[in-house]
Design a binder for these strands. Structure first.
Lengths: 259, 259
DNA sequence: ACAAAAGTGTTGGGAGTACACCCATGT
DNA sequence: ACATGGGTGTACTCCCAACACTTTTGT
């Protein structure tokens, strides 16, 4: 590494600040929503931003993301790869890293964005300390569709490059529930097939055939395991309750209609 | 961000060194190979490592990766998303970021790994300046299969956590050629269906039916466009030459047999 | 009785696999 | 003539979309 100058000379490399930013997604009332916090200081004072913070010395990137997620939502996240325990926890995985020189006007900041998927939480922000936080539908947070792409600043209501980060996170979630069992991360520990279908419909923004969906998910080995109970919380005929099975990769995958 | 202490106070965040590491893959003689360079200094002196280097002040992460790739291979890479120009160029995309506190024994280094896919190059290292570089089959670089996973150090011949980074890059490449047209990045500008098939076979390590493969790739709209010429460089009946088409997502995807 | 949501059965079409078979070159 | 790789045709299977139909609750 680092040809042409002495490697790892402390004066030979520029110092960076490293942060983690979180794209926390959930499905509320049939819509995909993201957690955003209101900024209290300049720059972008008063604008909405993704939650995040500095990585501490001697702290791993995933640990920093889990800490921020717990501070912001109270969720206990399991890292991707770790078997999901019985605790109420969200899925957490690294998304991408954003380090354009001008992305923060004050200093050089490299942000390791993470993607978290959580079930619909009763309280939007249990015990956070930021000024305010809310779940906002991602359509409101992303680029307005009809606007021409000429005024490249201020296109998104989010601060910094968080509009792009959110868009990347949403795209990751949309594609990943297709070939993995990740959609169950949006559900409570026990859920019905209809509730899982509404997750897919909310994330993809499409309508799915309830009959074929039922056959598909119950027929995929390892995706769902019946928990024995039933519920009528959605009205209508009582529905079987399921838990997420051990399978992580879906074969064959769920098919998103009309790409 | 950063609740509990003054945000962006220069003394309030620990400084990190930020580097880019490259997983450069190619297919040589029916095997997936990665570019590795021999380390000249401690630690891991004499061991093989992925090429990489520090990100410069005011340099974007992707720009740093492109610069390192050009220094190491002479390739001109187009970033993912940028339309592939006619120049001889490799595919380059961000892979993941590795920042465990102890991954470099000398200091806290956060490495943004990138994945590059290149056609088989005539010379392994045209004009590099490292001590030595070579294309090594990824099987030789990853964990020895038979060894018990107890002696957790020295399991891989690669320095630092580069064995893990390489494994992640290989897995990304293996899965991504399944549903994208990325396999053409392993081919020269003009190639035959058989050459493309040998790319899939080398990356996946499987044998594919030549007849069904031909039908599949020529029948997928936007994947391949005939260039008009033919070649007999593989022997046998002259084969049509193709270029990569405009499609990036393959629908339906290529299917990896016998997962 | 009616609405609403959960499930099951059936059918046609599109895509994959396996494999027989033909084509065009070099030696 | 034969080996080698390129390319086409075909039968069989599996999965999925579409939709008719039954089940079990609440009001």
């Amino acid at each position: 590494m680092m040809r042409g100058m002495s490697p790892y000379d402390p004066s030979a490399f520029p110092p960076f600040a490293v942060t983690v930013d979180l794209v926390v997604l959930t499905v509320r009332r049939h819509a995909l929503c993201a957690l955003v916090v209101r900024r209290g200081e300049q720059p972008f004072q008063g604008r909405w931003a993704l939650p995040g913070g500095f990585v501490r010395e001697d702290e791993d990137l995933g640990a920093a993301a889990r800490r921020e997620l717990a501070e912001e939502t109270g969720l206990c996240a399991h890292d991707a790869g770790t078997p999901p325990a019985e605790t109420s926890g969200a899925h957490l995985e690294q998304l991408a890293t954003y380090g354009a020189p001008g992305r923060d006007p004050r200093m050089r900041v490299v942000s390791v964005a993470h993607l978290a998927l959580a079930p619909d939480l009763p309280a939007p922000r249990p015990g956070g300390d930021a000024n305010s936080a809310r779940w906002a539908p991602v359509e409101e947070l992303l680029e307005p569709e009809g606007a021409p792409p000429h005024s490249d600043e201020q296109q998104t209501p989010l601060a910094f490059d968080h509009g792009r980060i959110l868009a990347d996170g949403v795209e990751r979630a949309r594609s990943k529930i297709e070939y993995s069992s990740l959609a169950t991360a949006f559900c409570p520990p026990e859920f019905t097939v209809g509730e899982l279908r509404r997750v897919y419909e909310g994330v993809w923004g499409v309508a799915l055939d309830p009959r074929n969906f039922h056959r598909k998910v119950t027929g995929t080995p390892g995706f769902l395991v019946p928990s024995g109970g039933t519920t009528t919380r959605q009205g209508g005929r009582p529905a079987q309750l399921f838990r997420a099975g051990g399978a992580t990769l879906l074969n064959p995958p769920m098919l998103r209609p009309e790409v």
